[in-house]
């Protein structure tokens, strides 16, 4: 009986607090992404303009996002039934966008970021994700 109560409390906490944290994170991502709209990050390597270049440097950004108890429960059910685990998609989406925003924050005065690569690794068996984004920031001579 006690087990059941603590389980329900954990799921409830996970659902309410987790949803709140996710909402806040998405709002902050939207705001910060808008700030860096003028700085393109591309996966191409040869999008350089015919202009003298001041410097080029490797930059990276990373973020580790964890799941909440409610999502762990949902994905457990999905693992049993099969199908798309949309609860985990938002975790990876948030981690990737956060990593890219941090990368751009580090190179805020660059002109373009070339060869952007994104790498994902798992944090724990529970389903958290760690994402690294890296690329080459190009600064043209002003």
């Amino acid at each position: 009986m006690f087990d059941l109560i603590s389980f329900i409390i954990l799921v409830g906490l996970g659902y309410f607090i987790g949803t709140q944290i996710e909402k806040k994170h998405y709002a902050s991502l939207k705001r910060r992404e808008a700030l860096y709209l003028q700085l393109p990050a591309v996966t191409a390597k040869n999008m350089l303009e015919e202009r003298p270049i001041e410097k080029a440097s490797l930059i990276s950004g990373s973020a580790a996002i964890s799941t909440d108890y409610f999502k762990t429960l949902l994905s457990g059910l999905r693992n049993f039934l099969g199908g798309e685990i949309s609860a985990h998609e938002t975790i990876l989406d948030r981690a990737r966008r956060e990593a890219i925003v941090r990368l751009k924050e580090k190179a805020a005065d660059a002109d373009i970021i070339l060869n952007l690569r994104i790498e994902t690794s798992t944090v724990s068996l529970m389903g958290g994700a760690e994402v690294l984004a890296y690329g080459t920031a190009i600064y043209y001579k002003k």
Partner: peptide
């Protein structure tokens, strides 16, 4: 892992 959110110590470690 109960509440969700960013694992700041883990990000810093990496």
């Amino acid at each position: 892992n109960i509440f969700g959110g960013e694992l700041k110590s883990y990000t810093a470690l990496m």
